[in-house]
Computed example of a mutant assay.
Amino acid sequence: MQKLKNARFYITNGAALRLGERRFIEVKNEKEISRTSLERAVINLAVSREKKILDLTKQDYESDKLTSLVLKKSGKSISKQNENLYKNIVERFNRGMNNPENQTILHTAPHHDDIMLGYLAYINHLVRTPLNKHHFAYLTSGFTAVTNSYMLELLEQLDQHLNSGIFDAKFEERYFDPQNIEAKNRDVSLYLDSIAAHSRTIRQEALSRRVLRNMVEIYEEDNITYLKDRVNELINYFKTQYPGKKDIPHVQKLKGMQREWEVEILWRFYGFNTEDVSHLRLGFYQGNIFTESPEITRDVIPVYELIKKIKPTIITVALDPEGSGPD
C-alpha cells in the first residue's frame, strides 16, 4: 500500500485492542477514567503477572505504563482499587448466575449466529424454567453468509425431489402454503428427526421442503410445473455467478430465508416454534460493501412494533462489533 498514492489503512478499535501506546493515549485523554478502561488495564495486568487481582502490589502497577497511569487517574489506594474491582466483578458473575423468572425476554441480534455465539450457554439455563417466555428477533436477512455453491446443492436436491413426485400429494393438501404455520413447523421437526435418526435422506427431504416453501412465498407460485422451471432457472443462475457478486433481490431473499431456517432449527431444538422467531429483514442491509445508514421508518419502526407486540420485560442485545466477534 505504501506505493499507492494517498493510500490509507484503517483499523477498528477492536482490532487495535493490543496496541499499548494507543490505549495509553486514549486513557490519558479521558477526563475521568472509565470503568471499562480501569478494568481492562488491571485485569490484563493480573493475567500478565499470573496473580489474583487482590494480590496486585504497587510494584506490579508501576511496572506497567498503563496501570501506573490508571492508578494515578483513579485517585484510590491500590488495596481499595483492587478490592472494589474484585467485588464488582464477583457481583456481576453472581448476577449472571441468578436466572430471572416470570419474565418475557426478547432476544435480539443483527445476524443469525450472534445469539448462538454470544450467549447460548446462558440460554441453556434461561430456558429450563417454564416461568419465562422467550422470543428471538434477527434484524438482518443474512443472505451474504449463504454461498452460491450451497444454494446450488440445495436446488439440485429439490429438483430431484420434484421430479420424483414425492411432493405431489403435499401440493394437493396445500402443505407449502406460506400461511400454513403448522407445516412450516413440521419442516423443522423433520430436520431434527433426521439428525436423531442419522438419516441423510430425511434431512435432504426436510431441506427441500423448506427451499420449496420459500420459493412458493417469494414467487407467489404454487403450480408445480412453473416451480420446476424456476428451480432450473436458479440452478443455472448459481452455476454462472461468481462468488461475491451482489445477487438480484429475489435471490437475496431466497438466500436470506435459508439462513432464517437455520435459526428456526436451533430454537426448535430448545422447544420453540417458528412463531417464536421474528425475521425483521431491515432494509439497511443491502449486501453492499458499505452498509447504508438506518432510517427511522424503514429500520427503527419495525423493531418498535415488535417490542409493542411482544411486550418484553427484558431485552437482550447480542452485539457484533467489527473485527471482534459477538458479545
Score class of each variant (00 low, 15 high):
residue 4 L to G: 13
residue 5 K to N: 14
residue 10 Y to Q: 10
residue 14 G to P: 00
residue 15 A to K: 15
residue 15 A to R: 08
residue 16 A to Y: 01
residue 18 R to E: 10
residue 25 I to V: 14
residue 28 K to E: 04
residue 32 E to I: 02
residue 33 I to F: 00
residue 33 I to G: 00
residue 34 S to Y: 00
residue 39 E to M: 10
residue 43 I to T: 12
residue 47 V to T: 15
residue 48 S to N: 10
residue 51 K to H: 04
residue 52 K to M: 15
residue 54 L to K: 06
residue 56 L to V: 05
residue 56 L to P: 00
residue 56 L to A: 02
residue 62 E to H: 06
residue 70 V to A: 00
residue 70 V to G: 00
residue 73 K to Q: 03
residue 74 S to F: 11
residue 74 S to N: 13
residue 83 E to N: 10
residue 85 L to C: 14
residue 89 I to V: 11
residue 94 N to C: 09
residue 96 G to F: 03
residue 96 G to H: 02
residue 101 E to A: 07
residue 104 T to W: 01
residue 109 A to F: 01
residue 109 A to G: 13
residue 110 P to E: 02
residue 112 H to V: 02
residue 116 M to R: 14
residue 118 G to E: 03
residue 120 L to R: 11
residue 121 A to P: 12
residue 122 Y to I: 07
residue 123 I to P: 00
residue 124 N to L: 06
residue 125 H to W: 09
residue 125 H to A: 06
residue 126 L to A: 06
residue 128 R to I: 04
residue 131 L to E: 06
residue 132 N to R: 04
residue 147 T to M: 08
residue 148 N to K: 04
residue 151 M to Y: 02
residue 156 E to I: 09
residue 157 Q to L: 12
residue 157 Q to H: 09
residue 160 Q to S: 15
residue 168 D to M: 14
residue 173 E to V: 13
residue 175 Y to C: 03
residue 176 F to Q: 02
residue 178 P to I: 15
residue 179 Q to M: 10
residue 180 N to E: 03
residue 182 E to C: 14
residue 183 A to E: 15
residue 184 K to C: 14
residue 184 K to H: 11
residue 187 D to A: 05
residue 188 V to Q: 13
residue 193 D to V: 04
residue 196 A to C: 11
residue 197 A to S: 08
residue 199 S to N: 05
residue 201 T to I: 14
residue 203 R to A: 15
residue 205 E to Y: 11
residue 206 A to E: 11
residue 209 R to F: 01
residue 211 V to S: 10
residue 216 V to A: 03
residue 219 Y to V: 04
residue 219 Y to F: 04
residue 224 I to N: 09
residue 228 K to E: 13
residue 228 K to R: 06
residue 235 I to S: 01
residue 236 N to I: 01
residue 237 Y to F: 09
residue 238 F to C: 02
residue 239 K to G: 12
residue 243 P to S: 03
residue 249 P to C: 12
residue 249 P to M: 13
residue 251 V to M: 13
residue 252 Q to K: 11
residue 252 Q to G: 10
residue 254 L to F: 01
residue 254 L to P: 15
residue 255 K to C: 01
residue 259 R to F: 00
residue 262 E to N: 10
residue 264 E to R: 07
residue 272 F to H: 15
residue 276 D to C: 10
residue 277 V to M: 03
residue 278 S to Y: 01
residue 283 G to C: 05
residue 286 Q to D: 03
residue 286 Q to N: 10
residue 288 N to A: 09
residue 288 N to E: 14
residue 289 I to Y: 12
residue 293 S to T: 08
residue 293 S to F: 08
residue 299 D to E: 03
residue 300 V to W: 07
residue 304 Y to G: 00
residue 306 L to Q: 00
residue 306 L to A: 01
residue 309 K to R: 02
residue 316 T to C: 03
residue 323 G to K: 02
residue 323 G to N: 06
residue 323 G to T: 12
